[in-house]
Design a protein around this nucleic acid. Structure first.
Lengths: 356, 356
DNA sequence: CTGAAAGCGCTAACAG
DNA sequence: CTGTTAGCGCTTTCAG
């Protein structure tokens, strides 16, 4: 590979990969230190010398080796991100938000998908530590402890996103699950729904646990008793399966509150399969507002917990820590906003529904 | 930031970030060379010495600095990936496929979203070159030339995915657009459609141009004349807009062939807005088979051009080049497979349609 | 203004 | 078996 140089490189350096500042110095007839000066844009370099060096740089296609620079500066200008699955639209959006913010400051992002596999997750963490990323943004799975994560802090700031773990006393940017679920339940209650069920994510995830407990709480506040609460994975398929159990009950719920949009999309599909009309016969509401939520038929009513915003804020926080601001741990909640679309509607009165 | 060490580190090194092999050597009472030996698992180290070193390593939470290792080995075990948008489900899947394959070999991936912005794209390329990624996988936008990309090859293998550019004579893994579009047109023709239109992506993208020209060709083969061919961006919104122009024609098409699934999803939405029933009054078919294609109502008929497979193959190819295999440029096409779902159906006979 | 020299943290020969 | 000694490519004082 490489070494396609057309003879411009000094003989001794032929076929030795990208050119170095020594190559440039030699070609320009200056010292290596001077090359460094012009590259870093120092002021005190005689214009003519600078010109010579610049010409050599172009000729050799010289691109300063950032790994060497990093070794000296002890900063890689890189942040690691590990999430359950980068192909999950929620996390893809989150990474995008972070990337945009990071790229502006010349930071690059190293990604990793953990698949909720503890050993994989751990491997990524230590790998990233070895690579000396300047910071880490992660949506940890339950199998990781606060202590594990804290150990990583010696390498740089770490901020959790979306999920927390027991014992973590550092930074985190989370969705405001309490507000989200409360709004959902209120919306459903206002539409007259009384028989409401919930389908959720795996209880090993903090967000799933939070959403479930806030569901219980706001149902109680509304004087309602959940028909049934099930849980599984945060996937369409699981949503389908969980919806199937709720919809098979004799006292079938008139509304389903899903732990996230993927689950809700699955519920929509299951309702369709059973010939149940949404929203006239069944209301379903999701959580997160992924881009595909508005594309479903009917468009999904959901509550936005903007992933890109979480990513952006996490990135900003890391950058902030990196520039020395260390005003204690910060837990930020990203606002939840109910988005009423077409998958929710007035409930048929309880009597009527019962009679059918 | 860092330095939360509890006094275990040698005095001189306090608050100096992660520990080094020198720290370990000092604590274990051996030389730095020996530390290196035990870390790299060399055989000839006296068991007792090894034990002492290992203890020190644990005590200091020592994690070998890979940037230093990279400086020596001239390999970063990192590959860069730049795609238009990592939040686009197609590219998210593609990256996931590549990541899985790369992670297995201890390679990490550095991502970048170009947004089809040439300057942003270029910035990523030179940035990645500076970081000395071992290889590059990219879906280039039109503004990049084969020469630009070739210049990068001095830094390591580069393989294009999904898109090509003029003048590129290296490796590429592309979807088999010819087969894909041909299958789509045949499918539509077999269903009796005669008035078929196409909505496509931006003509600056090679895939969009290819898909359009294969569309023209296979229509001709079927003895058909396209009603109209429009183009825009590969987005849902553009799909909506383009479908609007096709559906406003007096000789409204009975079927729309979309350049990708996002476009098709937009067409579905537009049809819905106009009260046009799919598939009875309009058939729509996409391309790519993103995960959400089967979630639309009706589920989208499309032709799979598996993104994860493209990513995986691209990764494998990079790895292959990296291990020295250099058997000329390889252009691989990933198979296209028609997936008939619910958005296509028999066309009403031309006469009938005309009469309505 | 420009050159020389000392490392950053680690590996890779070589000596002992 | 283990210690010593050069560097990898670049930045950074510190002299000329």
């Amino acid at each position: 590979m490489s070494g396609r140089d057309g003879g411009t490189r000094p003989l001794a350096a032929r076929n030795a990969g990208p050119s170095t500042s020594a190559d440039v110095a030699r070609l320009a007839g200056v010292s290596i230190g001077t090359v460094s000066h012009v590259v870093s844009g120092a002021k005190y370099v005689r214009p003519e010398t600078r010109r010579r060096v610049e010409r050599a740089i172009n000729e050799l296609q010289f691109e300063p080796n950032r790994v060497a620079q990093s070794l000296i500066s002890r900063r890689t200008k890189t942040v690691g991100m590990v999430v359950p699955d980068i192909a999950n639209p929620y996390f893809a959006e989150l990474m995008r938000g972070a990337e945009d913010c990071l790229a502006e400051q010349d930071y690059a992002v190293l990604l990793g998908s953990s698949d909720h596999d503890p050993s994989k997750e751990h491997r990524y963490y230590t790998n990233l530590a070895g690579r000396r990323v300047d910071g880490l943004i992660t949506a940890p799975s339950a199998a990781v402890t606060g202590a594990d994560l804290s150990a990583l802090r010696q390498f740089g700031p770490v901020v959790l996103v979306v999920e927390t773990v027991a014992g973590w006393d550092g930074d985190a940017i989370l969705g405001d699950d309490a507000s989200a679920i409360t709004q959902v339940v209120r919306h459903l209650a206002e539409l007259g729904h009384r028989r409401i069920g919930m389908i959720g994510g795996n209880a090993s995830l903090s967000s799933a646990r939070r959403r479930e407990s806030f569901f219980r709480a706001s149902m109680a506040d509304a004087g309602l008793t959940p028909v049934q609460i099930t849980s599984g994975a945060y996937t369409v398929e699981s949503g389908r399966a969980q919806a199937a159990v709720l919809l098979s009950r004799p006292d079938r719920p008139t509304a389903i509150c899903a732990g996230n949009d993927l689950l809700a999309l699955g519920a929509l599909a299951e309702a369709d399969r059973r010939g149940l009309r949404v929203p006239s016969e069944l209301s379903v509401v999701g959580c997160d507002d992924i881009p595909y939520a508005e594309l479903s038929r009917p468009p999904l009513t959901t509550v936005a917990l903007l992933a890109s915003e979480i990513g952006r804020r996490a990135a900003r926080l890391v950058l902030d820590r990196l520039s020395g601001n260390d005003d204690g741990p910060s837990i930020e909640l990203v606002d939840a906003e109910l988005i009423v679309r077409g998958s929710t509607a007035l409930a048929l009165s309880t009597e009527v529904s019962k009679g059918r």
